[in-house]
Design a protein around this nucleic acid. Sequence first.
DNA 1: AAGTGGTCTAGACCACTCT
DNA 2: GAGTGGTCTAGACCACTTG
Lengths: 247, 247
Amino acid sequence: MQNKSVLVPLDASPGVSRYATLAAALRARVVSGEWPPGTALPAESLLASEHQVALGTMRRALELLVADGLVERLQGRGTFVRQGISGASMLRFFRFDTGSTEVPRSRIVSRQRVAAPAGAARRLGLATGEAVLRLLRVRLLAERPCLLEEIWLPLDLFGALAEGSTAEWDDLLYPMFARRCGVHVHRAVDEIGFGVLTASQAGHLELAAGHPCVLVQRAAHDLAGRCVEWRTTRGDAHAFHYTVTIT
Amino acid sequence: MQNKSVLVPLDASPGVSRYATLAAALRARVVSGEWPPGTALPAESLLASEHQVALGTMRRALELLVADGLVERLQGRGTFVRQGISGASMLRFFRFDTGSTEVPRSRIVSRQRVAAPAGAARRLGLATGEAVLRLLRVRLLAERPCLLEEIWLPLDLFGALAEGSTAEWDDLLYPMFARRCGVHVHRAVDEIGFGVLTASQAGHLELAAGHPCVLVQRAAHDLAGRCVEWRTTRGDAHAFHYTVTIT
DNA sequence: AAGTGGTCTAGACCACTCT
DNA sequence: GAGTGGTCTAGACCACTTG
Protein backbone atom coordinates (compact mmCIF):
# COMPACT_ATOMS: atom_id res chain seq x y z
CA MET A 1 0.00 0.00 0.00
CA GLN A 2 1.33 3.44 -0.76
CA ASN A 3 -0.37 5.59 1.79
CA LYS A 4 -1.11 3.76 5.00
CA SER A 5 -2.71 6.94 6.26
CA VAL A 6 -4.06 5.09 9.25
CA LEU A 7 -0.79 3.57 10.38
CA VAL A 8 1.43 6.49 9.44
CA PRO A 9 -0.07 9.62 10.96
CA LEU A 10 2.82 11.81 9.78
CA ASP A 11 2.32 14.23 6.92
CA ALA A 12 0.36 12.42 4.25
CA SER A 13 0.50 15.53 2.09
CA PRO A 14 -1.33 15.00 -1.15
CA GLY A 15 0.82 15.14 -4.27
CA VAL A 16 4.06 14.83 -2.36
CA SER A 17 5.88 11.54 -2.32
CA ARG A 18 6.87 9.97 0.94
CA TYR A 19 10.57 10.09 0.14
CA ALA A 20 10.37 13.80 -0.65
CA THR A 21 8.70 14.39 2.70
CA LEU A 22 11.35 12.33 4.43
CA ALA A 23 14.10 14.25 2.66
CA ALA A 24 12.64 17.54 3.83
CA ALA A 25 12.48 16.25 7.40
CA LEU A 26 16.09 15.08 7.30
CA ARG A 27 17.20 18.33 5.68
CA ALA A 28 15.59 20.26 8.53
CA ARG A 29 17.49 18.17 11.08
CA VAL A 30 20.77 18.78 9.28
CA VAL A 31 20.15 22.52 9.01
CA SER A 32 19.16 22.69 12.67
CA GLY A 33 22.61 21.46 13.59
CA GLU A 34 21.48 18.13 14.99
CA TRP A 35 24.13 16.54 12.76
CA PRO A 36 26.92 19.10 12.32
CA PRO A 37 29.10 19.13 9.17
CA GLY A 38 31.48 16.21 9.10
CA THR A 39 29.39 13.95 11.33
CA ALA A 40 27.69 10.79 10.22
CA LEU A 41 23.94 10.34 10.02
CA PRO A 42 22.42 7.18 11.50
CA ALA A 43 22.59 4.19 9.18
CA GLU A 44 19.93 4.12 6.50
CA SER A 45 18.46 0.97 8.03
CA LEU A 46 18.04 2.76 11.36
CA LEU A 47 16.49 5.83 9.75
CA ALA A 48 14.15 3.60 7.79
CA SER A 49 12.88 1.71 10.80
CA GLU A 50 12.63 4.90 12.87
CA HIS A 51 10.44 6.48 10.21
CA GLN A 52 8.62 3.23 9.55
CA VAL A 53 9.37 3.12 5.86
CA ALA A 54 11.01 0.54 3.66
CA LEU A 55 14.73 0.74 3.14
CA GLY A 56 14.34 1.69 -0.53
CA THR A 57 12.15 4.62 0.36
CA MET A 58 14.67 5.99 2.83
CA ARG A 59 17.42 5.50 0.26
CA ARG A 60 15.46 7.62 -2.22
CA ALA A 61 15.19 10.36 0.38
CA LEU A 62 18.91 10.26 1.08
CA GLU A 63 19.63 10.40 -2.67
CA LEU A 64 17.75 13.70 -2.76
CA LEU A 65 20.01 15.09 -0.03
CA VAL A 66 23.04 13.91 -2.00
CA ALA A 67 21.73 15.67 -5.10
CA ASP A 68 21.33 18.80 -2.98
CA GLY A 69 24.96 18.53 -1.98
CA LEU A 70 23.87 18.39 1.65
CA VAL A 71 25.38 15.01 2.46
CA GLU A 72 27.70 12.52 0.82
CA ARG A 73 27.57 8.76 1.05
CA LEU A 74 30.64 6.55 1.24
CA GLN A 75 30.27 2.84 0.73
CA GLY A 76 31.19 0.92 3.83
CA ARG A 77 31.57 4.08 5.92
CA GLY A 78 28.31 5.93 6.19
CA THR A 79 26.38 9.05 5.25
CA PHE A 80 28.10 12.30 6.23
CA VAL A 81 27.04 15.93 6.34
CA ARG A 82 29.31 17.72 3.89
CA GLN A 83 31.93 20.09 5.27
CA GLY A 84 31.38 22.69 2.58
CA ILE A 85 31.88 23.33 -1.08
CA SER A 86 35.01 21.89 -2.55
CA GLY A 87 36.09 22.79 -6.08
CA ALA A 88 34.84 26.35 -6.09
CA SER A 89 38.14 28.04 -6.69
CA MET A 90 37.93 31.33 -8.53
CA LEU A 91 40.79 30.04 -10.59
CA ARG A 92 38.45 27.81 -12.52
CA PHE A 93 37.39 30.95 -14.40
CA PHE A 94 40.92 31.84 -15.45
CA ARG A 95 43.85 30.31 -17.21
CA PHE A 96 47.16 31.73 -16.08
CA ASP A 97 50.06 30.10 -17.85
CA THR A 98 51.92 28.76 -14.84
CA GLY A 99 51.58 25.18 -15.90
CA SER A 100 50.66 23.64 -12.60
CA THR A 101 47.34 23.69 -10.77
CA GLU A 102 48.81 24.79 -7.47
CA VAL A 103 46.74 26.62 -4.87
CA PRO A 104 47.50 30.32 -5.33
CA ARG A 105 49.21 32.14 -2.47
CA SER A 106 47.11 34.70 -0.67
CA ARG A 107 48.04 38.14 0.65
CA ILE A 108 45.65 40.22 2.71
CA VAL A 109 46.18 43.80 1.59
CA SER A 110 43.80 45.38 4.07
CA ARG A 111 41.31 44.48 6.73
CA GLN A 112 38.80 47.01 8.02
CA ARG A 113 35.93 46.90 10.42
CA VAL A 114 33.38 49.19 8.79
CA ALA A 115 29.71 50.06 8.64
CA ALA A 116 28.17 48.13 5.75
CA PRO A 117 27.50 50.25 2.68
CA ALA A 118 24.13 49.75 1.03
CA GLY A 119 25.31 47.30 -1.62
CA ALA A 120 27.13 44.92 0.68
CA ALA A 121 24.38 45.16 3.29
CA ARG A 122 21.73 44.23 0.78
CA ARG A 123 23.67 41.21 -0.43
CA LEU A 124 24.42 40.03 3.09
CA GLY A 125 20.88 40.52 4.25
CA LEU A 126 21.90 43.19 6.77
CA ALA A 127 20.68 46.69 7.43
CA THR A 128 22.82 49.47 6.00
CA GLY A 129 25.38 50.45 8.57
CA GLU A 130 25.62 47.15 10.40
CA ALA A 131 29.15 46.13 11.28
CA VAL A 132 31.02 44.16 8.63
CA LEU A 133 34.56 43.13 7.89
CA ARG A 134 36.01 44.32 4.59
CA LEU A 135 39.01 42.49 3.22
CA LEU A 136 41.15 43.34 0.24
CA ARG A 137 43.09 40.35 -0.89
CA VAL A 138 45.51 39.56 -3.69
CA ARG A 139 46.06 36.05 -4.93
CA LEU A 140 49.40 35.14 -6.45
CA LEU A 141 50.67 32.42 -8.72
CA ALA A 142 54.42 32.02 -9.05
CA GLU A 143 54.85 35.25 -7.06
CA ARG A 144 52.84 37.22 -9.60
CA PRO A 145 49.45 38.78 -8.68
CA CYS A 146 46.60 37.31 -10.71
CA LEU A 147 43.38 38.03 -8.83
CA LEU A 148 42.15 40.91 -6.70
CA GLU A 149 39.32 40.28 -4.26
CA GLU A 150 37.14 42.53 -2.18
CA ILE A 151 35.41 40.50 0.51
CA TRP A 152 32.58 41.52 2.80
CA LEU A 153 31.78 39.48 5.92
CA PRO A 154 29.14 40.09 8.60
CA LEU A 155 30.99 40.85 11.82
CA ASP A 156 28.57 38.94 14.01
CA LEU A 157 29.78 35.72 12.42
CA PHE A 158 33.41 36.59 11.76
CA GLY A 159 34.43 38.52 14.87
CA ALA A 160 37.25 36.03 15.39
CA LEU A 161 38.91 37.30 12.22
CA ALA A 162 38.85 40.97 13.23
CA GLU A 163 41.80 40.69 15.57
CA GLY A 164 45.31 39.29 15.29
CA SER A 165 47.75 39.16 12.45
CA THR A 166 46.49 38.40 8.97
CA ALA A 167 49.93 37.31 7.85
CA GLU A 168 49.39 33.74 9.02
CA TRP A 169 45.99 33.32 7.44
CA ASP A 170 45.47 30.28 5.25
CA ASP A 171 45.60 30.53 1.49
CA LEU A 172 42.12 29.03 1.39
CA LEU A 173 39.50 31.02 3.28
CA TYR A 174 36.59 28.61 3.53
CA PRO A 175 38.35 25.93 5.57
CA MET A 176 39.57 28.74 7.84
CA PHE A 177 36.04 30.12 8.15
CA ALA A 178 34.91 26.69 9.29
CA ARG A 179 37.77 26.14 11.73
CA ARG A 180 37.92 29.58 13.31
CA CYS A 181 34.35 30.82 13.02
CA GLY A 182 32.25 27.69 12.63
CA VAL A 183 30.89 29.01 9.36
CA HIS A 184 30.47 26.38 6.68
CA VAL A 185 30.01 27.67 3.13
CA HIS A 186 27.68 25.29 1.49
CA ARG A 187 26.43 26.97 -1.63
CA ALA A 188 27.69 29.86 -3.71
CA VAL A 189 26.35 31.78 -6.67
CA ASP A 190 28.94 33.29 -8.99
CA GLU A 191 27.84 36.00 -11.36
CA ILE A 192 30.34 36.73 -14.10
CA GLY A 193 30.57 40.05 -15.90
CA PHE A 194 32.99 42.31 -17.67
CA GLY A 195 34.57 45.59 -16.63
CA VAL A 196 37.61 47.78 -16.59
CA LEU A 197 40.21 48.25 -13.85
CA THR A 198 40.50 51.46 -11.89
CA ALA A 199 44.02 52.77 -11.36
CA SER A 200 44.07 51.48 -7.81
CA GLN A 201 42.84 48.03 -8.79
CA ALA A 202 45.25 47.85 -11.67
CA GLY A 203 48.12 48.64 -9.35
CA HIS A 204 47.47 45.55 -7.26
CA LEU A 205 47.44 43.39 -10.37
CA GLU A 206 50.46 45.00 -12.04
CA LEU A 207 48.32 46.03 -14.99
CA ALA A 208 47.50 49.39 -16.54
CA ALA A 209 44.53 51.47 -15.48
CA GLY A 210 41.65 50.89 -17.84
CA HIS A 211 42.76 47.34 -18.56
CA PRO A 212 39.79 45.05 -19.33
CA CYS A 213 38.91 42.68 -16.51
CA VAL A 214 36.45 39.98 -15.67
CA LEU A 215 34.38 40.46 -12.53
CA VAL A 216 33.10 37.55 -10.55
CA GLN A 217 30.59 38.50 -7.91
CA ARG A 218 29.94 35.76 -5.43
CA ALA A 219 27.26 35.35 -2.79
CA ALA A 220 28.16 32.49 -0.47
CA HIS A 221 25.57 30.84 1.77
CA ASP A 222 25.67 28.53 4.75
CA LEU A 223 23.58 25.42 5.37
CA ALA A 224 20.60 27.41 6.54
CA GLY A 225 20.68 29.57 3.43
CA ARG A 226 22.01 32.70 5.09
CA CYS A 227 24.38 34.76 2.94
CA VAL A 228 27.65 34.75 4.88
CA GLU A 229 30.01 36.30 2.34
CA TRP A 230 29.82 38.78 -0.50
CA ARG A 231 32.89 38.86 -2.71
CA THR A 232 33.97 40.63 -5.86
CA THR A 233 36.91 39.10 -7.70
CA ARG A 234 38.73 40.82 -10.57
CA GLY A 235 41.20 39.27 -13.01
CA ASP A 236 42.72 40.04 -16.39
CA ALA A 237 40.05 39.55 -19.04
CA HIS A 238 42.60 38.02 -21.38
CA ALA A 239 43.18 35.21 -18.89
CA PHE A 240 39.48 34.45 -18.66
CA HIS A 241 38.16 31.15 -19.94
CA TYR A 242 35.25 28.98 -18.96
CA THR A 243 33.70 25.84 -20.34
CA VAL A 244 30.04 24.84 -20.18
CA THR A 245 28.55 21.62 -21.46
CA ILE A 246 24.92 21.56 -22.50
CA THR A 247 22.91 18.43 -22.98
CA MET B 1 21.03 -13.53 -6.53
CA GLN B 2 22.98 -10.74 -8.02
CA ASN B 3 24.97 -12.48 -10.72
CA LYS B 4 23.13 -15.46 -12.13
CA SER B 5 26.10 -16.04 -14.40
CA VAL B 6 24.66 -19.38 -15.44
CA LEU B 7 21.22 -18.12 -16.38
CA VAL B 8 22.29 -14.77 -17.76
CA PRO B 9 25.08 -15.41 -20.26
CA LEU B 10 25.33 -11.73 -21.18
CA ASP B 11 28.28 -9.68 -19.98
CA ALA B 12 28.81 -10.45 -16.32
CA SER B 13 31.65 -7.93 -16.24
CA PRO B 14 33.21 -7.77 -12.81
CA GLY B 15 32.89 -4.45 -11.05
CA VAL B 16 30.14 -3.22 -13.35
CA SER B 17 26.58 -3.20 -12.13
CA ARG B 18 23.88 -4.85 -14.15
CA TYR B 19 21.96 -1.62 -14.64
CA ALA B 20 25.07 0.12 -15.95
CA THR B 21 25.55 -2.68 -18.45
CA LEU B 22 21.91 -2.48 -19.47
CA ALA B 23 22.17 1.28 -19.89
CA ALA B 24 25.16 0.87 -22.17
CA ALA B 25 23.28 -1.67 -24.26
CA LEU B 26 20.24 0.59 -24.57
CA ARG B 27 22.44 3.59 -25.36
CA ALA B 28 24.01 1.62 -28.20
CA ARG B 29 20.59 0.83 -29.64
CA VAL B 30 19.55 4.49 -29.47
CA VAL B 31 22.78 5.66 -31.09
CA SER B 32 22.47 3.01 -33.80
CA GLY B 33 19.21 4.61 -34.86
CA GLU B 34 17.00 1.68 -33.84
CA TRP B 35 14.87 4.21 -31.97
CA PRO B 36 15.20 7.56 -33.78
CA PRO B 37 14.80 10.88 -31.93
CA GLY B 38 11.21 11.51 -30.98
CA THR B 39 10.16 7.86 -30.93
CA ALA B 40 9.19 5.91 -27.86
CA LEU B 41 11.19 3.05 -26.40
CA PRO B 42 9.33 -0.12 -25.44
CA ALA B 43 7.68 0.05 -22.04
CA GLU B 44 10.01 -0.50 -19.11
CA SER B 45 8.13 -3.67 -18.21
CA LEU B 46 8.77 -5.06 -21.70
CA LEU B 47 12.43 -4.13 -21.63
CA ALA B 48 12.78 -5.69 -18.19
CA SER B 49 11.28 -9.01 -19.21
CA GLU B 50 13.21 -9.03 -22.49
CA HIS B 51 16.47 -8.59 -20.62
CA GLN B 52 15.36 -10.91 -17.81
CA VAL B 53 15.88 -8.38 -15.04
CA ALA B 54 13.61 -7.00 -12.38
CA LEU B 55 11.64 -3.88 -13.14
CA GLY B 56 13.62 -1.82 -10.65
CA THR B 57 16.89 -2.75 -12.30
CA MET B 58 15.66 -1.68 -15.71
CA ARG B 59 14.37 1.55 -14.22
CA ARG B 60 17.83 2.28 -12.82
CA ALA B 61 19.29 1.77 -16.29
CA LEU B 62 16.74 4.12 -17.84
CA GLU B 63 17.49 6.72 -15.17
CA LEU B 64 21.09 6.70 -16.33
CA LEU B 65 19.96 7.46 -19.89
CA VAL B 66 17.82 10.31 -18.56
CA ALA B 67 20.81 11.71 -16.68
CA ASP B 68 22.77 11.52 -19.93
CA GLY B 69 20.08 13.57 -21.63
CA LEU B 70 19.59 10.75 -24.11
CA VAL B 71 15.93 10.08 -23.33
CA GLU B 72 13.14 11.68 -21.36
CA ARG B 73 10.37 9.94 -19.49
CA LEU B 74 6.81 11.23 -19.30
CA GLN B 75 4.42 9.78 -16.79
CA GLY B 76 1.55 8.00 -18.46
CA ARG B 77 3.08 8.42 -21.94
CA GLY B 78 6.36 6.60 -22.25
CA THR B 79 10.11 6.92 -22.63
CA PHE B 80 11.19 8.97 -25.65
CA VAL B 81 14.48 9.60 -27.38
CA ARG B 82 15.16 13.32 -27.05
CA GLN B 83 14.92 15.47 -30.15
CA GLY B 84 17.92 17.58 -29.23
CA ILE B 85 19.19 20.16 -26.81
CA SER B 86 16.71 22.74 -25.68
CA GLY B 87 17.83 25.77 -23.70
CA ALA B 88 21.19 26.26 -25.33
CA SER B 89 20.64 29.74 -26.67
CA MET B 90 23.77 31.85 -26.94
CA LEU B 91 21.70 34.60 -25.41
CA ARG B 92 22.01 33.00 -22.01
CA PHE B 93 25.53 34.43 -21.94
CA PHE B 94 24.40 38.00 -22.58
CA ARG B 95 22.01 40.54 -21.19
CA PHE B 96 20.79 42.99 -23.78
CA ASP B 97 18.38 45.47 -22.32
CA THR B 98 15.37 44.74 -24.48
CA GLY B 99 13.24 43.67 -21.60
CA SER B 100 11.65 40.62 -23.12
CA THR B 101 13.13 37.17 -23.65
CA GLU B 102 12.09 36.93 -27.28
CA VAL B 103 13.93 34.70 -29.75
CA PRO B 104 16.36 36.95 -31.60
CA ARG B 105 15.85 37.43 -35.33
CA SER B 106 18.47 35.89 -37.53
CA ARG B 107 20.10 37.22 -40.71
CA ILE B 108 22.46 35.11 -42.80
CA VAL B 109 25.15 37.52 -43.98
CA SER B 110 27.00 35.05 -46.15
CA ARG B 111 27.02 31.39 -47.07
CA GLN B 112 30.01 29.81 -48.74
CA ARG B 113 30.94 26.31 -49.77
CA VAL B 114 34.65 26.17 -49.03
CA ALA B 115 37.53 23.83 -48.36
CA ALA B 116 37.87 23.45 -44.60
CA PRO B 117 40.76 25.41 -43.13
CA ALA B 118 42.89 23.56 -40.60
CA GLY B 119 41.15 24.92 -37.50
CA ALA B 120 37.62 24.13 -38.55
CA ALA B 121 38.64 20.76 -39.99
CA ARG B 122 40.27 19.72 -36.75
CA ARG B 123 37.24 20.67 -34.67
CA LEU B 124 34.87 18.90 -37.04
CA GLY B 125 37.02 15.80 -37.25
CA LEU B 126 37.61 16.28 -40.97
CA ALA B 127 40.76 16.36 -43.05
CA THR B 128 41.98 19.82 -44.00
CA GLY B 129 40.44 20.76 -47.31
CA GLU B 130 37.28 18.69 -47.04
CA ALA B 131 34.13 20.48 -48.17
CA VAL B 132 32.36 22.51 -45.51
CA LEU B 133 29.70 25.17 -45.37
CA ARG B 134 30.71 28.47 -43.79
CA LEU B 135 27.96 30.76 -42.56
CA LEU B 136 28.21 34.28 -41.26
CA ARG B 137 25.15 35.16 -39.30
CA VAL B 138 23.96 38.18 -37.33
CA ARG B 139 21.37 37.89 -34.61
CA LEU B 140 19.17 40.86 -33.86
CA LEU B 141 17.05 41.96 -30.95
CA ALA B 142 14.63 44.81 -31.53
CA GLU B 143 16.18 45.34 -34.97
CA ARG B 144 19.60 45.93 -33.46
CA PRO B 145 22.50 43.51 -34.08
CA CYS B 146 23.72 41.86 -30.89
CA LEU B 147 25.62 38.72 -31.83
CA LEU B 148 27.87 37.78 -34.73
CA GLU B 149 28.35 34.11 -35.54
CA GLU B 150 30.72 32.22 -37.78
CA ILE B 151 29.43 28.71 -38.31
CA TRP B 152 31.19 25.74 -39.90
CA LEU B 153 29.22 22.70 -41.04
CA PRO B 154 30.45 19.52 -42.75
CA LEU B 155 28.96 19.51 -46.25
CA ASP B 156 28.31 15.77 -46.28
CA LEU B 157 25.68 16.29 -43.60
CA PHE B 158 24.36 19.69 -44.57
CA GLY B 159 24.26 19.57 -48.37
CA ALA B 160 20.57 20.43 -48.21
CA LEU B 161 21.46 23.87 -46.84
CA ALA B 162 23.93 24.71 -49.61
CA GLU B 163 21.25 25.59 -52.14
CA GLY B 164 18.20 27.83 -52.15
CA SER B 165 17.50 31.13 -50.50
CA THR B 166 18.73 31.74 -46.98
CA ALA B 167 16.18 34.49 -46.47
CA GLU B 168 13.51 32.07 -45.32
CA TRP B 169 15.69 30.19 -42.87
CA ASP B 170 14.39 29.78 -39.36
CA ASP B 171 15.61 31.98 -36.55
CA LEU B 172 16.62 28.82 -34.68
CA LEU B 173 19.09 26.62 -36.52
CA TYR B 174 18.96 23.34 -34.61
CA PRO B 175 15.31 22.54 -35.28
CA MET B 176 15.99 23.36 -38.93
CA PHE B 177 19.04 21.08 -38.93
CA ALA B 178 16.83 18.27 -37.66
CA ARG B 179 13.99 18.91 -40.11
CA ARG B 180 15.98 19.53 -43.27
CA CYS B 181 19.13 17.48 -42.71
CA GLY B 182 18.17 14.87 -40.13
CA VAL B 183 20.93 16.11 -37.86
CA HIS B 184 20.03 16.18 -34.18
CA VAL B 185 22.29 18.17 -31.87
CA HIS B 186 22.34 16.39 -28.53
CA ARG B 187 25.34 17.82 -26.77
CA ALA B 188 27.34 21.01 -27.05
CA VAL B 189 30.45 22.32 -25.38
CA ASP B 190 30.72 26.09 -25.09
CA GLU B 191 34.11 27.58 -24.34
CA ILE B 192 33.98 31.21 -23.27
CA GLY B 193 36.85 33.63 -23.70
CA PHE B 194 37.62 37.28 -24.18
CA GLY B 195 38.85 39.18 -27.21
CA VAL B 196 38.64 42.28 -29.30
CA LEU B 197 36.64 42.96 -32.47
CA THR B 198 38.28 43.38 -35.86
CA ALA B 199 37.02 46.25 -37.98
CA SER B 200 34.95 43.90 -40.10
CA GLN B 201 33.39 42.14 -37.12
CA ALA B 202 32.69 45.45 -35.43
CA GLY B 203 30.88 46.68 -38.51
CA HIS B 204 28.35 43.86 -38.31
CA LEU B 205 27.66 44.66 -34.66
CA GLU B 206 27.57 48.45 -35.08
CA LEU B 207 30.49 48.82 -32.70
CA ALA B 208 33.97 50.32 -33.05
CA ALA B 209 36.97 48.33 -34.17
CA GLY B 210 38.95 47.18 -31.15
CA HIS B 211 35.85 47.03 -28.99
CA PRO B 212 36.12 44.34 -26.30
CA CYS B 213 34.04 41.26 -27.00
CA VAL B 214 33.24 37.91 -25.51
CA LEU B 215 33.90 34.88 -27.67
CA VAL B 216 31.89 31.71 -27.30
CA GLN B 217 33.32 28.78 -29.22
CA ARG B 218 30.92 25.91 -29.51
CA ALA B 219 31.42 22.34 -30.63
CA ALA B 220 28.06 20.65 -31.18
CA HIS B 221 27.73 16.87 -31.33
CA ASP B 222 25.07 14.44 -32.50
CA LEU B 223 23.83 11.31 -30.74
CA ALA B 224 26.78 9.25 -31.90
CA GLY B 225 29.23 11.84 -30.60
CA ARG B 226 30.26 13.17 -33.99
CA CYS B 227 31.01 16.90 -34.06
CA VAL B 228 28.47 18.32 -36.50
CA GLU B 229 28.97 22.03 -35.98
CA TRP B 230 31.78 24.37 -35.03
CA ARG B 231 30.67 27.88 -34.18
CA THR B 232 32.27 31.06 -32.94
CA THR B 233 29.94 33.66 -31.48
CA ARG B 234 31.00 37.21 -30.65
CA GLY B 235 29.10 39.77 -28.60
CA ASP B 236 29.75 43.03 -26.77
CA ALA B 237 31.75 42.25 -23.64
CA HIS B 238 29.76 44.85 -21.72
CA ALA B 239 26.59 42.85 -22.34
CA PHE B 240 28.15 39.65 -21.06
CA HIS B 241 26.86 38.06 -17.89
CA TYR B 242 26.67 34.51 -16.72
CA THR B 243 25.63 32.86 -13.48
CA VAL B 244 27.03 29.65 -12.01
CA THR B 245 25.86 27.98 -8.83
CA ILE B 246 28.27 25.82 -6.89
CA THR B 247 27.24 23.36 -4.25
C1' DA C 1 33.40 -10.10 12.29
C1' DA C 2 30.41 -6.39 12.32
C1' DG C 3 28.57 -2.51 10.16
C1' DT C 4 27.96 0.44 6.27
C1' DG C 5 26.13 1.66 1.72
C1' DG C 6 25.20 -0.61 -3.20
C1' DT C 7 22.70 -3.86 -6.04
C1' DC C 8 18.83 -6.77 -7.15
C1' DT C 9 14.42 -9.09 -6.83
C1' DA C 10 9.30 -9.82 -7.30
C1' DG C 11 5.81 -8.35 -6.31
C1' DA C 12 1.87 -4.31 -5.20
C1' DC C 13 -0.66 -0.08 -5.86
C1' DC C 14 -0.93 4.95 -7.48
C1' DA C 15 -1.12 8.86 -10.90
C1' DC C 16 -1.32 10.07 -15.32
C1' DT C 17 -2.49 9.98 -20.50
C1' DC C 18 -4.58 8.52 -24.16
C1' DT C 19 -8.62 6.38 -26.88
C1' DG D 1 -10.20 0.81 -19.56
C1' DA D 2 -5.74 -0.18 -21.03
C1' DG D 3 -1.18 1.24 -20.89
C1' DT D 4 2.44 4.09 -19.27
C1' DG D 5 5.78 5.66 -15.80
C1' DG D 6 6.07 6.74 -10.41
C1' DT D 7 6.00 5.11 -5.68
C1' DC D 8 6.51 1.69 -2.10
C1' DT D 9 7.42 -2.69 0.16
C1' DA D 10 10.12 -6.51 2.42
C1' DG D 11 13.06 -9.04 1.82
C1' DA D 12 18.13 -10.94 -0.09
C1' DC D 13 22.96 -10.76 -1.18
C1' DC D 14 27.31 -8.06 -2.54
C1' DA D 15 31.27 -4.79 -1.90
C1' DC D 16 33.61 -2.09 1.01
C1' DT D 17 35.62 -0.16 5.46
C1' DT D 18 36.87 -0.53 10.08
C1' DG D 19 38.07 -2.55 14.50
